[in-house]
């Protein structure tokens, strides 16, 4: 079942007449099926984050349509978009974006609270998820009292708790050390498999990308290449490295494997 369809999306920054026009995305089209774990890769400035913002309805495309679960985002007004974000989309950011003034528990249930859920329902959902994600013990702590890995897991928990149609992860391992990064990727895989969550992850970390089922490479606002995971993670990893070395902008992350 198709959960997301992007049709001919372009995004142009700067006014039409000015010479400084910058085309961040150029006529991109693709679709994502339910339960898919898709990676988007590309060098800095290739338009990855712009694409993610458009799918997440934080930004609007200049032309083209973005359809999530049969709903055309370009036709929604501000309020409807906010509703749509709460209901259908879960965000995970590079810098976690947890609210520092709230405990992890409060952070996680925030989307539900904004949505007006009953306290009992919220707590039931939270109990189940936090157990799976292994943060039950630190729920009453504040973000600055726990490690980065725990913060990112809480952020993941917040993204998942509303049962969104699609989870958008923007460089989720970017701020984590390799061990925590791996733990988080395992977690995303778990979410993907156990809850059949659809995940779209933007990254330039080759190791993180190797956890995906499919990788889409973007360069200069256009889709450049696509890769599918095979039997062996190692092979997939090497294939990604090959593409990235052509594209430019990949980190040399082969040393991940030398540690493991």
């Amino acid at each position: 079942m198709e959960i997301l369809r992007v049709e001919n999306i372009s995004k142009v920054y700067g006014t039409k007449r000015s010479a400084k026009q910058f085309r961040a995305l150029n006529n991109i089209s693709f679709s994502v099926k339910k339960g898919e774990f898709l990676g988007v890769m590309g060098p800095s400035g290739s338009g990855k984050t712009t694409l993610l913002n458009i799918i997440g309805s934080i930004d609007r495309p200049t032309t083209g349509r973005c359809i999530i679960d049969g709903q055309d985002l370009t036709k929604l007004n501000k309020n409807q978009l906010a509703q749509h974000r709460i209901k259908n989309i879960g965000f995970i950011f590079q810098d976690y974006n947890l609210l520092e003034t709230m405990t992890l528990k409060e952070n996680i249930i925030l989307p539900l609270a904004l949505h007006g859920y009953k306290v009992r329902e919220m707590e039931a959902k939270l109990a189940r998820l936090s157990h799976d994600l292994g943060i039950t013990g630190v729920l009453d702590k504040y973000p600055y009292e726990v490690s980065g890995g725990e913060q990112q897991r809480a952020a993941a928990c917040r993204a998942v708790i509303t049962n969104p149609k699609i989870i958008l992860a923007d460089e989720p391992t970017g701020n984590l050390d390799s061990k925590s990064g791996r733990a988080l990727l395992d977690l995303l895989t778990l979410i993907n498999q156990k809850y059949q969550a659809t995940i779209l992850m933007v990254t330039h970390d080759v190791f993180a990308a190797s956890y995906c089922q499919k990788i889409m490479f973007i360069r200069d606002g256009e889709i450049y290449n696509e890769l599918y995971a095979g039997e062996s993670k190692r092979q997939f990893f090497d294939a990604i490295i090959d593409v990235m070395s052509v594209l430019g902008g990949a980190d040399n992350e082969a040393d991940y494997f030398s540690h493991s």
């Binding site: 978009l81 906010a82 609210l99 989307p111 917040r158």
Partner: peptide
């Protein structure tokens, strides 16, 4: 500021 940015990403309505 970043608090409200995060909230908007999560999906807070303008009136809210």
């Amino acid at each position: 500021r970043h608090l409200y940015q995060t909230l908007r990403k999560i999906g807070i309505r303008p009136q809210q």
